[in-house]
Structures are given as structure tokens and as C-alpha cells.
Design a protein around this nucleic acid. Structure first.
Lengths: 253, 253
DNA sequence: AATACTCCAATTGCATGCACTTTCAGCGGA
DNA sequence: TCCGCTGAAAGTGCATGCAATTGGAGTATT
């Protein structure tokens, strides 16, 4: 009757959230490379919402460090420097050691089964693209974090893991997932056994080797980074530009 | 000279940022208690901007965990559960240990002077209100983080420190700043000496004792928490409400 | 040919308006 | 007296419109 004003409000539209998730995924699967432009109009049109919503979503992603938001300029997918990437991994190591410390010996049978199932999926995806492997590997770590039942920890682990994903697409050589997968299995085993010290060390080693495999060159400053290097200097100058950077072949002409 | 289109674009209005900072500060100084309502209209009017901007700012703060955003409802200052507070402190300990690990033995003379000056300020503020003491103590930790030159670390330490501030106002007994201040001094000394292990242990002990002083009761579930406890249950039911919570004396009538 | 200038299209910054949802005071029935 | 109902007020969700800024192609100048 007229007495039921909202029939299925539970469908909480949450358009901003939807767009955030979509963009996040697109970014970590490298469908959107670092530096890719994200105009509000285009996003809005693509997702069937107004600029307002797209804008709001970009704001959230900027808060997570996945998107760079410069005033009056088109938003772009973040391009972390090599040092920032290293910092992100350092933080991630500590956070995820905390995760496994809290989890060691406390997992239920069904949780362990769930973890194993996920790694099986990773295994199955080995034939597919790198992007999918990387996403699945990342989701394994997020799954672990979720099992702590600590929303804050989940948030931070997710964020920093996504950031690390982003850097993989920048600095990584072709991803080799074999070792990552076996290390995931080792971590599950140690968690089940409840060996806290062991699993913390395993996690450190795992993430450290991922980082070292990813961040190959100490500070190579490849290609288009030149633009970003000069950006802060140019921004310092308030009114007029210093040099008009000659053509350096932007990501793609 | 009509050729100078932008005279001082550096005045980047950044209204959203201004509001965020203002609200953040109001929250950590307990001018806005947990649970306080934050209607978009009111904020917009207060800061001389439109609802759009206020809304955007609330979105950012929600991302930082300082504000709770429920669909179609007025935003409120976040009310972390006791467990979330404990989790936040655990994360904070690990992050700040990372900070001092990176900083040990690497501080310049002027940086050490800056830290000492800050603690002096904390000392001077001992006569003032708790709110200011807490804010200064928190800012000491953020200052440390900034000296790592790692934007990511700064962001996470700041966020989690603000969250902890929030919990202090919920669960803390009257703040006694003496020991905190002396511990800050001890940390500076150990940093200057470059004793990495020592300073990491100092930081752990410092934050742990702050947490223990703050989170006194294991899980007392005081007063208005009742509402929050029942909230998820009520939300599960889509259409109609289960019970109409009787008067429980909301924050203030 | 290379550089500087100008102007227009593209895009963001922000406010406002409308539809929908929640809240709550007031009213009527048990 | 207590409970449930109802309608208006308050508040959010979102789209759209306008002003301001930026980027860059085209033109003028050396």
C-alpha cells in the first residue's frame, strides 16, 4: 500500500562507492596506467552519473593515494616515485606482520579452507594475464586482513596493498607468480600451525622479495618521469612558467 | 601587460581542505564530541560555502575514519568501539616504531632542536586544558613522522593518531601529560644517540602506556553505545524497524 | 624556422534546485 | 497513560548551470 514508501531501499545505490570500486579495480589491473587522465565528464558519462558523483569518487581515491588531484587540472592515476613505492612496501610489511601475528593459531578450519581455495584460484590463473595474477595475489593479502575482524587494519592493508599494485605496473619486470603462490601456501601452513614468529618472518620475507622483484632499479627515473620531476619546481613559480617543456613523448601521443 | 593571466593562483582556495582541517582540529580538541551531528547545511553556512563543499569535506573525513557517514542520515563524528580503539593503537605502535627506526641517528641538529622546542611547548601547555595537551602530544608524533620525508608514512601516522585522539575523548580518564612529556624527551634523546633498538622499544612502551591509560575498562559499553550496538541489527531489517529504542538520553537533548 | 602571443574549446570549482528519505511532534485509539 | 499513526519539516542524493581556469592550436613576429 501507500504505507510502504521504500520498497527496496536496501539497494542502497551508493553510486560513489560503485565508481570507486570500478576505478580501483581498473587501476590495479593496469587497465588504467599511472598517469592516465580521468576527466570528470568522461567518468560520469561512462558510469551514467553526473560529474558531481564522479568528482566525489575521485576525491575518495585521491584520499587513498591512487589518484592525483591537481587543482583546475584533470585528475590522473597516481604515479608514485620509486622512493614512495619503497616506503609503501616498508609500511605494508609492518602492517601485514601485524595481521599474521594476530591471526596465528586463531584461524578456524573454514577460514583456512577459504584461504586455500583462494590460493588454488591463484594457481589456476597462472596461465592468464599478469594483471589478474597480481590482483589475485593482492586479494589474498586483503583476505587475510579481513580475517582479523579489524576494520581499521583491513582499510590500511587494502590501501597500501593497492598502492603497491600501482607501483608494480610502473617498475616491475614481468611478474612471476610461482614463488608468490608457494609463499602464500607456506604462510597459510604456518598460520594453521600457530607459529607466530615463523609466520611473521615468512610474511616479511615474502613481501620483501615481492618488493625487490618489483623495484628493480635503485632510481632509474625512466621516461616520462621527467615531467613529474620538474612539476614541483614549476609549481613553486607562482605566475609564469619557467620552461615550456619540449615534446618528451607523453605516455602516448 | 595584459599577458599575466593568473597573478596569484597560488592562493589555491582549496575550500574543502580548509573545512577538513577545521573539522579535524575541532574533533581532536573535543570541541566536537563523538556522536556530534554534522549536518551539511550547517557546516556550509558556518564556513560560508555551499553544501556541496561541506559534503565533500565530510566524505574525506569519513575516509579518514573521523566521521561516520550513513546514507540519508546526518553525518556524525565517529564513535569507535573499544575494540576499534585498541586496534588503532596496535597499528599506531607498529607505524611509529617504523618511524623512529628510520629516524634513529639520522636527525640533523636543527631537527632535534625543533623536536625539543615542540616538547617545550607541550610543557608550557601543561597548565591549560586537556584538549590542548592532547593535541600537542599528537602533533609531536606527527612531527616525527614528517621528518621521515615519507608522505605515505605521514598520512597513515596522522590518520591513526587522530583516530586515537578520538578514542581518548571517549574512554580516557583525565589526561596526565607529565609522563608523556618525559617519554617524548627520552625518545628524542635516543633518536639523537642513534640507538635504533632502544628508541623502538621506547616508542612501543610510550604508546602502549598511553593506550592503557586511555582504554581503562576492558569493554564497559558505557551509556549511549547501546544505540550503536543495536544499529547493525536494525539496519539488517530492510523495511520496517524492529524496536523503537526508548529514550536513552542521547548525547544531549 | 623557431619563438611569442592570442583566443577558443575543454575542463574544473562551486552553488543551486528538485526529488526522495528520515525524523519527529502532534493526534487519536486502546 | 501509553502506544501507534500521520503529515510536515529537515536533511540528504544527485543533476544541472554558470563562472573561472587551463591547454593548445593557430597566428603573428623575429
Amino acid at each position: 500500500m501507500a504505507a510502504r514508501p521504500t520498497r527496496k531501499t536496501s539497494k542502497s545505490s551508493d553510486k560513489v562507492g560503485v565508481i570507486c570500486r570500478a576505478l580501483r579495480r581498473a587501476i590495479i589491473e593496469q587497465a588504467l596506467e599511472p598517469g592516465a587522465k580521468l576527466p570528470e565528464d568522461a567518468l560520469g558519462e561512462r558510469f551514467g552519473v553526473s560529474r558531481t558523483i564522479a568528482r566525489h569518487a575521485l576525491g575518495q581515491l585521491a584520499g587513498e593515494g591512487l589518484v592525483e588531484l591537481r587543482r583546475n587540472r584533470i585528475a590522473v592515476v597516481a604515479t608514485p616515485s620509486w622512493q614512495e613505492a619503497r616506503d609503501a612496501f616498508d609500511i605494508r610489511i609492518e602492517l601485514e606482520r601485524l595481521v599474521v601475528r594476530q591471526l596465528a593459531g586463531k584461524l578456524t578450519k573454514s577460514q583456512i579452507a577459504e584461504l586455500n581455495a583462494h590460493v588454488d584460484a591463484e594457481d589456476r590463473a597462472r596461465g592468464g594475464t599478469d594483471a589478474v595474477s597480481i590482483r589475485l595475489a593482492t586479494e589474498f593479502h586483503i583476505l587475510l586482513a579481513q580475517m582479523t575482524n579489524s576494520p581499521i587494519l583491513v582499510r590500511y592493508v587494502s590501501e597500501v596493498a593497492y598502492r603497491c599494485c600501482l607501483t608494480l605496473s610502473l617498475y616491475s619486470r614481468p611478474h612471476s607468480s610461482e614463488c608468490a603462490i608457494s609463499e602464500h601456501r607456506a604462510i597459510i601452513a604456518a598460520l594453521a600451525k600457530g607459529d607466530e614468529a615463523k609466520v611473521m618472518e615468512l610474511m616479511r620475507h615474502h613481501l620483501d622479495s615481492v618488493a625487490n622483484r618489483a623495484l628493480v632499479a635503485p632510481v632509474p627515473q625512466r621516461g616520462r618521469d621527467l615531467l613529474d620531476i620538474l612539476a614541483p619546481y614549476a609549481d613553486e613559480v607562482t605566475g609564469d612558467r619557467v620552461v615550456k617543456l619540449p615534446k618528451v613523448g607523453r605516455s602516448r601521443p
